[in-house]
Design a protein around this nucleic acid. Sequence first.
DNA 1: GTCCAGGGCCGTT
DNA 2: AACGGCCATGGA
Length: 214
Amino acid sequence: MLNTNKIHRLYRELLEKHGPPEKIWPQWCAKKKSWRDRELIAIGAILTQRTSWHNANLALKNLKKASLLSIEKIARLRDLKRLTKLIRPAGFYQVKPKRLYDLCRFIVREYGGLKKFMKEDLAIAREKLLDIHGIGPETADTILLYVCDQSIFVVDEYTKRLVRGRRLAKKLSYDYLQDLFEKNLPRNFKIYQDFHALIIIGQKGREASRMEKI
DNA sequence: GTCCAGGGCCGTT
DNA sequence: AACGGCCATGGA
């Protein structure tokens, strides 16, 4: 893998400009993640769908306060009324509680928890995540990359904007861009994690992208 | 009041 | 395959 292609140069440019994103995305880009951090990221992946991080964070704080920032505990809920109330700030209260519940139940039912889910084969885990109603490519890949430390590149609206702005590609479809980034970078999950964070930091600005540690 | 934010699904063309 | 409407909250 040569480091001289445009994509890799872009990564180094952003890293040079903003520095390692660990301080700005403390839990997402940490060198060592706790299991609690991984649970938070998985839950956050659902809550943040088409929603500002501020609102998703309000919901995460509510869950934490209720001691429900836990995949197992959410999976054990009898009904969604309490969950719906807690995550209301994240919006879409008719769909998100069920998505979150289904994700948590899936991980517990199929793997008994995150620990084993992390070790699942990447392609199989991705297929199974995509089978869950309400989990699409970006949410699945966010979980695989930031929760499971799998080397899969996450494409989001910021990525597309950056690619469009710098004219790095003609097509902007999810699969095409994911392939483009993966082909032009070392297969290294930490690079993918940092790069994705840096793309957002680069576009939104450091302060606007700063993740409050929960 | 209007606009929009780290998506995804479901119609319709 | 591509596009539009839809889902909903809180802050600017």
